[in-house]
Amino acid sequence: MSFGEKSNFAILVALLVSLALYGAHLTGFGLRIGAFSSILGAVIGFIVLAVIGHIIIAIAGGKGSDLSDERDRDVDLKTDRLSELTLTAVILGLIAYGIAQDDMLLANIAFFGLFGGALVKAIAKLVLYRMAA
């Protein structure tokens, strides 16, 4: 198993544990109840678990165990597209929810987030195409 795969496992476990703990914390309260400290705790917990996982992988793998190559980048590109689609679907849902609840602040933030992201991507592509032209 390559470092990229092991790293992915570490992140997957860290995500599942963080999501499970945060989900359990919300159980009984509902999605409308929450605090900044709880979200911060989940984010910090995820980062700490991911770092510990990567330290274990590095120690167990020995020298050169963190090598990544073009295949890892290829896998990253393909999976990034899937992640982008998921995020887009969630943001479209947020826009729809904001409009339905007459919460235009939420809808507008989601809208500008979505279009802002697309704008950054378009500009980055423009630069990269020009660089390769």
């Binding site: 795969e5 990544s68 190559d69 295949r71």
Partner: peptide, 10 residues
């Protein structure tokens, strides 16, 4: 080559 063993296997 400068890639991982797994890439050569693939």
């Amino acid at each position: 080559v400068g890639v991982t063993r797994q890439t050569i296997a693939a």
